[in-house]
Amino acid sequence: MAIESLTKPEATFEAAAARVAPPAKRHEGHHGPDGEVRSRSAEVFTVSGRGESIGFAMETVLGTDERKRVPDTDLNPWRKICALRIRGPGGTGAIGTGWFIGPRTVVTAGHCVFSQTFFGGWADAVEVVPGLNRLQNRSLVRPFGSTVSRRMSVLDRWAKSDDREPDFDIGCIHLDEPLGEKTGWFGFASLPPDELVAFMVNISGYPSDLGGGDEQHFAKNRILHVSERRVFYDVDTHGGQSGAPVWIHEEEGRPPLVVAVHAYGIGATPTALGIVANSAPRIVPEIYDIFEGWLDRDTQPTTAVG
């Protein structure tokens, strides 16, 4: 069954039909205005290629909490990751994580913008804050400012699932202001399962338990299992990190390549797999095409947005 993008009705664009794309497609990212300058913490924290498990990680912190705070969120790749301040139509508030794939396009988990469980449908508005950080004096820093959007999309299968299909839990926030030009954006890829297996993955986002959603925290480990539409890993995460990028470096020195969108703790891992793992819906070929469709739409004028 083909899946499609479903756009919040107020938006000016219509959903486009998903196209079947060939496997192993890669969409290049962008470093941002200051070129390839990468943070020192990224050199220390992130992992590349395939490898052995770093240790058993739990929603979820699995064993010893391996998460590390990111100190320099104004640098690559951390600045491409955004704290999300979500407001539901009834005034419900929530936090999540998103990441740029283009100047005006932020990918996140579907439930961060559309959830029957948390919002009774579409979120009303989302504030996007790239590189949000808290300094030692406790003050909050927004190195690239922030912007509020009411334009969002999700996969139609997610919207129709009543929050019951984790495989399709992917969404997007469309920005009027091109904040991604200040931060750069991630590349993303649709890789076949046999290429993904055993890759080391990196995940960074804004959890509620460490730093109260105001600090970015990073963790890494090895992929444990790849299903048709999801990837499973023992990487420590927590509430608030929904929507965070799950990225690999195919080789040392290669740019980050996002392969999945973090969304679930251990409760969403089928017991039949026999593993304790968190998970993310994968960027499969049809999702890849939908991402490109979202990017195309965000290059269009947005003057008539309601």
């Binding site: 979820t60 419900t92 936090i95 019951r164 509620s208 509430g239 929904s242 969403a268």
Partner: peptide, 24 residues
Amino acid sequence: YVVVVEASVPLPEIAIVADAQGGF
């Protein structure tokens, strides 16, 4: 913040914010 840390059905890792009355 309120998060669901264990569930008998799959639930995602979003964190809900208690309102001005401390409710959610």
